[in-house]
Design a protein around this nucleic acid. Structure first.
Length: 295
DNA sequence: AAATCGTGGGG
DNA sequence: TCCCCAAGATT
């Protein structure tokens, strides 16, 4: 009758019931807004760094309209050093749209969510599933890796393809929506704490016996080489330095203060310009520089 | 569609 | 030390 895949829901969910981390956004009483904020913060940022900031945000801005009423600079300061600060501005813009166009309630429909700034294929489905219990595939880097190993017998996932990735997981989902949503959370947890990228803890895996990668003798990764993201010396580092100066100051700072953040003038100027273009920095009337809205 | 965009912890 | 990597989105 029921097809038993190498990622059997019974085994995965049973494991999840026992060991799931007690994260605040997993509280059954957590609102759709709380889930959305957590998902955006968790884009490329580890749980341990997100948790304290998320708690702060929920206490300060418990509904979308509350965040929408805050200034951009205030929001960027509260974002702190989570990284990729454009996410903070997009979340602020999403909150504004939700307050104005959706009655201050986070939409539950995937396509509507996809129309909000900063919400893509993963985040839209994560909100639909985790906040509203919908039966939609939720595919992040963890799920891609777990499926690559357990189902396809590969050491790691190849290049992402939204269409293929969603289809891969769709066929695994239990029929009942709430169970499907919890299954997605469990797959993510499995990838996050057991089936990790570098050194998987296979001895702790609930589907070890069924894992296609194990059965194939743990072949090495055969896909195309992954792009290594440099950081030291890149514009990303310089932009971070510049923004850090502005976050560390109570108000507008002089050009000289920003110049001290990086010694190569050409790169420094290029990065400052890009920050202005991105709306992460503004120039005041008297030639100072400030976080947006704080000049 | 490949490149870009922060930051910090751990192997 | 250095390098990998972490609940992606956007252009």
């Amino acid at each position: 009758m029921a097809t038993v895949s190498s990622l059997d829901p019974g085994a995965v969910l049973g494991w999840f019931d026992r060991v799931a981390r007690d994260l605040p956004w997993r509280d059954p009483d957590c609102t759709g807004w709380g889930v959305l904020v957590s998902e955006v913060m968790l884009q490329q940022t580890p749980v341990a760094r997100v948790e304290p900031i998320w708690l702060d945000w929920m206490a300060r801005w418990p509904v979308p309209s509350a965040l929408a009423a805050a200034g951009q600079g205030e929001v960027l300061r509260a974002w702190g050093k989570l990284g990729y600060p454009r996410r903070a501005l997009r979340l602020h813009a999403a909150a504004t749209a939700i307050a104005a166009e959706h009655g201050d309630v986070v939409p539950s429909d995937v396509d509507t969510l996809l129309g909000l700034p900063g919400i893509g294929a993963y985040t839209a489905r994560a909100v639909a599933a985790f906040a509203y219990g919908q039966r939609v595939p939720v595919v992040d880097t963890n799920v891609r890796r777990v499926v690559a190993r357990a189902v396809h017998g590969a050491a790691d996932a190849g290049p992402p393809s939204t269409t293929r990735d969603l289809a891969d997981v769709e066929v695994l989902l239990p029929r009942e929506p709430a169970r499907a949503a919890r299954y997605s959370a469990a797959l993510m947890e499995l990838g996050a704490v057991v089936c990790v990228a570098r050194t998987p803890r296979c001895a702790d895996c609930p589907v070890y016996a069924d894992c296609a990668w194990q059965r194939a003798g743990r072949p090495a990764y055969a896909g195309p080489a992954k792009v290594v993201q440099k950081f030291a010396g890149t514009d990303r580092q310089v932009r971070g330095r510049l923004l850090d100066v502005l976050r560390g100051a109570p108000g507008p700072v002089s050009r000289a203060a920003l110049d001290a953040a990086w010694d190569e003038p050409g790169q420094r100027d290029r990065c400052l310009h890009s920050l202005l273009v991105d709306g992460l920095v503004e120039q005041t009337d008297n030639g100072m520089f400030a976080l947006p809205g704080e000049g």
